[in-house]
């Protein structure tokens, strides 16, 4: 399969709805047909070719050259293939993602990976609020897949998260893992306030966690051995060499259980030496 590159011709006014830019859809069309696809920009329908030049490239990727900061829904409901956006983008990237890979080489807005089920999203910059949260009108957040953010995330990352993994290399904002149902979140940097509010189950692993960040209805921290951390560390090391020093780490951690206001089986883990 040959790839496609879309290059923005000129700046545009309004928000560009990019939900039509899916590898599985575009790869089956000719260049001319792709240029005829209707795109919603600020409520106006225009042909894609009006905004983007379309060219075939030697790869199996759909590559977007911006800037397209005023855009949303990149990779929405995408089921396969590889989408690469070479600039900052707006909200709802990977909305309901069902498979494939999305790489954002810049920053993203809010609601990244909302309601996603499978596949992976990588962001080289920062992400806004509600990463992995429910899509609008839904009760449950992401149900599978993995989101990796090199920078920081905003508030309510993992809100109502049902399954899957979020890895944040930077800091996380307030209300991390609020209303979380299951799944795993790793935060390598600092964690904001009120983390774990109404958290039912699930795990937050955060080496730099401060107890003051966790909502007060969690149990006090206790030192425990968590066997599955051995598998978790090995997996982290296998997907990212920056975690390689964890591969053979001890499986002891400080553990806070809560939120007692609801089911109370969510956990915050902060690794410690044996």
């Amino acid at each position: 399969m040959s790839g496609i590159e879309l290059t923005l011709r000129h700046p545009y006014a309004g928000i560009l709805d990019a939900s039509a830019f899916l590898p599985e859809r575009l790869f089956s069309l000719s260049t001319a047909a792709i240029e005829q696809i209707e795109v919603d920009v600020g409520g106006q329908k225009e042909a894609l070719g009006h905004f983007f030049s379309v060219s075939a490239i030697e790869s199996d990727r759909l590559v977007i050259q911006g800037p397209v900061m005023n855009s949303c829904r990149w990779g929405a409901e995408m089921s396969c293939g590889r989408l690469i956006v070479e600039c900052d983008v707006g909200d709802e990237v990977g909305l309901g993602l069902r498979g494939g890979t999305i790489e954002i080489r810049g920053n993203v807005g809010s609601h990244l990976g909302c309601g996603m089920r499978h596949g992976s999203i990588t962001v080289s910059g920062n992400a806004g609020d509600y990463v992995g949260a429910p899509s609008l009108g839904q009760r449950r957040g992401m149900r599978g897949g993995i989101i990796t953010i090199e920078g920081n995330v905003g508030q309510r990352a993992g809100d109502c998260m049902r399954r899957g993994t979020i890895i944040v290399h930077g800091d996380a904002g307030d209300y991390l893992a609020a209303r979380m149902i299951a799944g795993t979140i790793a935060v390598c940097g600092r964690v904001g306030k009120q983390a774990g509010a109404l958290m039912r189950r699930g795990t937050v692993w955060a080496p730099q966690l401060q107890p003051a960040s966790i909502v007060s209805s969690f149990s006090s921290g206790q030192r425990v051995q968590i066997p599955h951390l051995a598998l978790w560390y090995r997996w982290l090391a296998s997907i990212d060499t920056r975690f390689s020093h964890w591969a053979h780490a001890e499986t002891y951690a400080h553990r806070w259980l809560g939120d007692a206001a609801v089911q109370g089986l969510g956990e915050f883990l902060s690794p410690i030496a044996a």
Partner: peptide, 24 residues
């Protein structure tokens, strides 16, 4: 009811609390 499941690398594991810690 205190058991937890964890999916790591596509494989699901059960963590069952026991008196020496957890049975994985």
């Amino acid at each position: 009811g205190y058991q937890m499941s964890k999916v790591i690398n596509g494989r699901r594991f059960w963590r069952i609390p026991v008196m020496d810690g957890e049975f994985l």
